[in-house]
């Protein structure tokens, strides 16, 4: 096997394959980053809706709950395929990349909503009591008192989700989105050995995830001194 790899390597590690792989890596990066950021943002919005009280927000609260419960229970691949066929059905002229990004964001939103909700519920309820008796409204309490205390509870599970999510973006290859996993397929079908093709992809996935994991650890460390506040 080594002889074959050594023979094939010069043909594999060319400028064009390099560009091709970098493009694919860029797509995976965008899908991951986009999904994580948009998922965190929309997840937070869903939580803000879900933690409301009173009849006025009953319907949005129920919808937020339904969204989270549904998309956490469906395999991401099914969500992607569904999004793909739905976009075909309505004859929307959008790129596969965008379809994949939207579908993955749905999944990330549902998971992040649960992670953020758990963090918010980890803050002592007496913080709500004193805010209420001082006439703080719901949003102000959330943004100035609860979330600043919740986010160090949220960070660790959020980053372990982000790391899983980078790998979940591989499902986008099933739609034919050119990202890392799809690039691996393309290279093998061009006749390169799977060990080289998927081996390179493996290294590139690692190159994406590792800095993310380090960044998460750094953030947690930075929060540690204020951990007892």
């Amino acid at each position: 096997m080594w002889a074959r790899l050594a023979d094939e390597a010069p043909r594999f590690f060319t400028y064009y394959n390099g560009i091709f792989l970098l493009q694919a890596m860029g797509a995976t990066l965008l899908l991951s980053l986009g999904g994580c950021l948009a998922g965190s943002f929309f997840g937070l919005l869903l939580v803000l809706l879900r933690k409301t009280k009173g009849a006025l927000f009953l319907v949005p609260r129920a919808l937020a709950w339904g969204f989270v419960e549904f998309f956490r229970r469906v395999p991401p691949l099914v969500v992607l395929l569904l999004a793909f066929f739905a976009s075909n059905l309505v004859k929307m002229d959008v790129s596969l990349f965008l379809v994949a990004l939207v579908a993955l964001t749905f999944v990330a939103t549902a998971f992040m909503a649960e992670i953020i909700r758990a963090g918010i519920e980890g803050v002592h309820p007496n913080q709500w009591d004193s805010a209420a008796t001082m006439n703080f409204g719901y949003l102000r309490t959330m943004l100035t008192i609860i979330l600043p205390q919740a986010w160090k509870i949220i960070l660790p599970p959020a980053f372990s989700f982000f790391l899983l999510f980078v790998k979940d973006t591989a499902f986008a290859s099933q739609l034919g989105t050119l990202e890392l996993t799809y690039a691996g397929k393309v290279l093998t079908s061009r006749g390169f050995t799977a060990v080289l093709s998927y081996g390179s992809i493996l290294v590139l996935y690692f190159a994406l995830s590792y800095p993310l994991a380090r960044f998460g650890a750094w953030l947690e460390d930075r929060l540690a001194p204020s951990g007892n506040h």
Binding site: H124, A131, I145, Q149
Partner: peptide
């Protein structure tokens, strides 16, 4: 606005 309460567990904003 006119009645303030102090709690047994202080309930200071910890952040």
């Amino acid at each position: 606005d006119r009645c303030a309460i102090v709690f047994q567990q202080f309930n200071l904003f910890r952040n």
